[in-house]
């Protein structure tokens, strides 16, 4: 499932990052295979509000389609 499709609050494990122009940016924030990402249940306009390990991030939904959980 893509992170952008996630609607249910909970913990997810990142299975894959699909190559895109954002890949480096996603990697440097710690979006890496095996890392945990928690969805807080909040979608603020075009952003998914997630906790990546210990960081609170608002990730654009377009970018979330590149994160497979």
């Amino acid at each position: 499932m893509r992170l952008s499709q996630v609607r249910k609050k909970g913990n997810y494990e990142i299975a894959q990052i699909l190559p895109s122009v954002f890949t480096h940016r996603l990697l440097s924030f710690g979006f890496t295979k095996g890392n945990k990402v928690a969805f807080t249940g909040m979608i603020v306009h075009d952003y998914h509000y997630v906790v990546l390990e210990d960081k609170l991030l608002a990730v654009p939904n377009a970018w979330c389609t590149k994160v497979v959980v």
Binding site: L26, Y47, L56, L57, A58
Partner: peptide, 10 residues
Amino acid sequence: PSQTIIQLPS
């Protein structure tokens, strides 16, 4: 630009 990741501080 397309949106960027916004880090939300505590």
